[in-house]
């Protein structure tokens, strides 16, 4: 560390704007985790841009003392792509909810992921539309009774991690708002990742969908319901690690009793495996509510980064053609002179 090294605290990333989420909202704990991570990492506020769409989560940039754009519903990945393409040296984060990113903005999300633009995309999943006061979202479970589904939702929900894997995102992780350390761990990893990073955070909406994740995240059930993914280790969970994940004959993940099948049968998690098939199989474990749900890093692989390749093409063109000469350009092709 140099002598001039500045140390940051959480306060350095707080704005003078009053935070206006509902009291008790899970967003507060995510905001705290991000600000604490920034302080821990000493991230320069002026080199950071937070971009969001519309929704409760999308107010996030107003509360971060960095540069920020609160854009249009669903379009944050596109706006952020513009920032990152223009200025690859900036640290660009995208914040949004499940409606913003998977419904109205689903297209932009998958394309940002497939291009591998160096954006840190954090999706707060509360399985409900909060800002519009309680309609079912693209992650709400089937049968959910809401204002717009009085007979129960008949929509099949998205599994956001499966979707991101389908789009071949190079970094995919999941955390929940009750576990600050887990949030900071995956966000730190996302920040270090080169290329697009997608982080899903289960977030409680205590007004319109209170307790949606209680069956997973309550302290007394966590050990049995959350599967901590650790790279290079057999996937096991339960208070004593008595349960584990193995592959069946079809390559699908199944929950097994470790004592019964033996540790050797367990699937060893490999987050760097380039082929997304196994990661996808793991992501399907949370297919049904009430099933144990994996959290942590699903995938972390290297693939050429969009804005880096774009810069390389610019550099190659300048090397090949020399710096642009406007007079020469407009006079290219056939010309003739009138005296």
């Amino acid at each position: 560390m140099s002598e001039q090294a500045v140390t940051f605290t959480r306060k350095d990333y707080q704005t003078d704007q009053e935070v206006r989420w509902c009291p008790g909202c899970g967003d507060y704990s995510i905001l705290a985790a991000v600000q604490l991570l920034f302080a821990e990492q000493g991230i320069q506020p002026e080199n950071t841009v937070f971009v969001s769409g519309i929704g409760c989560a999308a107010r996030f940039p107003y509360y971060m003392e960095t540069y920020g754009i609160h854009s249009i519903h669903g379009r944050a990945p596109a706006v952020a792509t513009g920032v990152k393409l223009a200025r690859p040296e900036l640290d660009v984060w995208v914040i949004g909810g499940d409606g913003d990113m998977l419904s109205i903005g689903g297209n932009h999300l998958i394309h940002a992921l497939r291009r591998n633009v160096g954006l840190k995309i954090v999706m707060f999943n509360n399985q409900i539309y909060g800002l519009t006061k309680g309609q079912y979202s693209p992650t709400s479970e089937q049968g959910k009774i809401t204002k717009s589904s009085p007979f129960g939702s008949i929509d099949q929900p998205f599994n956001p991690v499966s979707l991101a894997l389908g789009a071949e995102a190079t970094f995919i992780a999941r955390a929940h708002d009750m576990d600050r350390k887990l949030m900071m761990d995956v966000l730190r990893r996302a920040h270090e990742h080169e290329g697009a990073a997608f982080v899903e955070i289960y977030q409680n909406c205590n007004v319109f969908n209170d307790g949606a994740f209680e069956g997973l995240t309550a302290k007394d059930v966590r050990a049995d319901m959350l599967i901590d993914l650790k790279h290079g280790e057999p996937i096991r969970f339960g208070a004593e690690g008595e349960k584990g994940v193995a592959l069946n004959e079809f390559g699908e993940c199944v929950i097994v009793d470790v004592a019964e099948v033996g540790v050797d049968r367990l699937l060893v998690h490999d987050e760097h495996r380039y082929d997304p098939t196994l990661a996808f199989a793991i992501s399907r474990l949370a297919e049904h509510p009430g099933m144990p749900t994996p959290v942590g890093v699903f995938r972390d692989v290297a693939r050429p980064v969009y804005e880096v390749q774009s810069q390389q093409q610019l550099a190659l063109a300048s090397e090949r053609d020399g710096a642009g000469d406007l007079a020469k350009l407009i006079a290219s092709g056939s010309t003739w002179t009138v005296n």
């Binding site: 540069y67 754009i69 854009s71 379009r75 596109a78 706006v79 792509t81 513009g82 920032v83």
Partner: peptide
């Protein structure tokens, strides 16, 4: 829509 969004992002970035 994305193209317009990208343009706004690029404008913000200078």
């Amino acid at each position: 829509i994305s193209a317009a969004g990208v343009a706004i992002g690029a404008a913000f970035a200078g």
